[in-house]
Design a protein around this nucleic acid. Sequence first.
DNA 1: TATTGTTATACTCTATAACTATA
DNA 2: TATAGTTATAGAGTATAACAATA
Lengths: 159, 159
Amino acid sequence: MRTRGGSVGARVIPPALRGSLGFLLNKPAHEYRELLDPRLEPLGLTGKTLAMLKLLEAAPGPLTQHRIGALARVDRSTIVTLVDLLEGRGFVSRGKVPGDRRAHAVALTPKGRAALPAARRVEARVQAAFLSGLAPAERRTLMGLLARLLQASRSKEEA
Amino acid sequence: MRTRGGSVGARVIPPALRGSLGFLLNKPAHEYRELLDPRLEPLGLTGKTLAMLKLLEAAPGPLTQHRIGALARVDRSTIVTLVDLLEGRGFVSRGKVPGDRRAHAVALTPKGRAALPAARRVEARVQAAFLSGLAPAERRTLMGLLARLLQASRSKEEA
DNA sequence: TATTGTTATACTCTATAACTATA
DNA sequence: TATAGTTATAGAGTATAACAATA
């Protein structure tokens, strides 16, 4: 009662769920994380910490934790843990912010910068594998639409 | 130091994150759930339990918990809790499966069936609001691409 | 031996509230 | 008074492992 590849029938998306946006967003999100994180683990990273590293690399200089949270849409209390992880690995450092002794200047260390290329390659491979069911143009479309969705949503802040 | 709408700058997606599929999938998934679940709560449902209700409605008859899990790609241990919730609300019932005394026949009750139209209307409204930044055609494209992504992914099962 | 449902447990992700040290 | 970072905590979401009943 189980052919090769699953006659059980979980391969096809039930029509009843094809219109459920929550299902369509949550499942891939979860599956992608399960795929990427183990591959980044040998490098001492996860999808989330890698994203933070990329954010820091793209910035003109150090960022405060508050600023990182604003960019990544994550609460500042959550940022603490992520920075702790990266600092523990020696990928970032917490320095001083001239003019504000409350804030921390989170900066990419040489080690953190050096870790980025390999991590990016891993991410690119995993991402390509995960998206392999879609044509290149479709992948761009999908990511573009998701980005616009995110841009349109106010999530927390708004009057 | 905070203009209307957030000069803080979290509105735009940082270029560094536009290529991070994990970020693009996780954030909308999370935000959508935060939006939908409170709206379904007065009806005694959540996005997940509503999805299960829709699955049962579309089925020709009762489904075993194992079957529900296969369709929704959720572990059977997780299904237990969801069925418990729906059963507690009187939306589904656990009956017997002729021929297999291990399995439970999860069936929609009249009350469960009656709850669906209103829940669907709420879901449609929330979904439309969440997708309001996209044109109708784009919404269909997005959901279609997500569905294909899910269809292509093997998640757990495979040789 | 394998499968269905169940329970116990554990892990991740994320946020809220309260505290501190500043501003 | 308000903000940056921290800590403690709580809650959702999900899975694995082990067990009983049954196949």
